[in-house]
Design a protein around this nucleic acid. Structure first.
Lengths: 168, 168
DNA sequence: TTAAACTTTCAAAAAGTTTTGAAAGTTTAA
DNA sequence: TTAAACTTTCAAAACTTTTTGAAAGTTTAA
């Protein structure tokens, strides 16, 4: 396979994975494009490479910035803005975990905490089943939360090292 | 909060979480409903509770079965089919991890393996950046894969015990 | 100032996904 | 067999999300 074809495949696959994980396809594709660009590139070049409109490119870039996955860069003497992606996969994973925790896990834990407080008679199977499912899921979610918390502060080698050693 | 309201909130929240994670809302809601039902219930009851059509209920139930999250049950002397969900959260998590690995991670790893083989001149920054990103992501994906593999065979207490102790 | 160069917004259109419901299919009891 | 009870299918409709592109806004250099 040639480099050009490889790049295409990479952008396509990253986009598909993104859309399966609730990140929109274009956003994942722009991220992929920046991941394989040695130099920062402009909105214009992104529009061109991916055949997307200016509006779409702009919104997507802002989203990626708010996710902490890319940054703007100014070049002296130029009006244009250049964008580049952090290429460190471990940083990317932490950034994504952090955002998803904030946007998805936290609100659910909050609701589960409330639902755990619902009172009822444990002899009533309706209530007993509800209560058990809610508290079990709550415990599980909190374990996931603690693991993410640790991951956010961990070094990559230590993290995988510990996990994989433990699982040997 | 009353039990009835709690149930509503639980179904709603589970549905929302599902849709953020690429599982369709109705599917997550039907799953939630079954999670808090002490007894197996019929298609009819599900349609009624969630105000969804017969076709939708049927497709959703089949999907949930293919994900290994619920099962059919026959009651002696009755034509109707009853459905119930495995209530063990650890089993649910493993089942979901297993399916998503098969449907999403495996295909990506396959492509990354191919892309890692693309040849080029490392002095060419275009190629060097592409190659580094691809191989880094590939390594990362393989670590995730190994972790899931282990999780699939692990007992819940051992798994969280090891992870949380390690992170203390 | 001004105007050129660039970025951002947002309503409408396109694309994608989910749901409906009626029709077709299947199974069972008599 | 038959018909009643139930399940499955699928094309069309409803709904949701994403994208477009023209207009408005902003910044900078002269």
């Amino acid at each position: 396979m040639e480099l050009a074809e490889g790049k295409q495949k990479f952008i396509e696959s990253w986009g598909k994975l993104g859309s399966e994980w609730g990140i929109n396809r274009t956003m994942a594709q722009v991220h992929a494009l920046l991941l394989i660009s040695p130099e920062p590139i402009t909105t214009e070049e992104i529009m061109e490479s991916l055949s997307i409109s200016r509006g779409n490119a702009n919104m997507t870039l802002r989203d990626l910035i708010s996710w902490g996955l890319i940054e703007k860069q100014h070049k002296a003497g130029e009006r244009k803005e250049y964008f580049y992606a952090d290429k460190d996969v471990w940083n990317i994973a932490r950034q994504v975990a952090k955002e998803r925790r904030k946007r998805e896990l936290d609100p659910v834990v909050k609701i589960l905490d409330e639902l755990s407080k619902v009172n009822g008679d444990l002899k009533n199977p309706e209530f007993a089943t509800f209560h058990k499912s809610v508290t079990d899921i709550n415990k599980f979610a909190k374990n996931v939360d603690k693991t993410i918390e640790t991951m956010l502060h961990a070094e990559e080698n230590w993290f995988w090292g510990s996990i994989l050693k433990m699982f040997k």
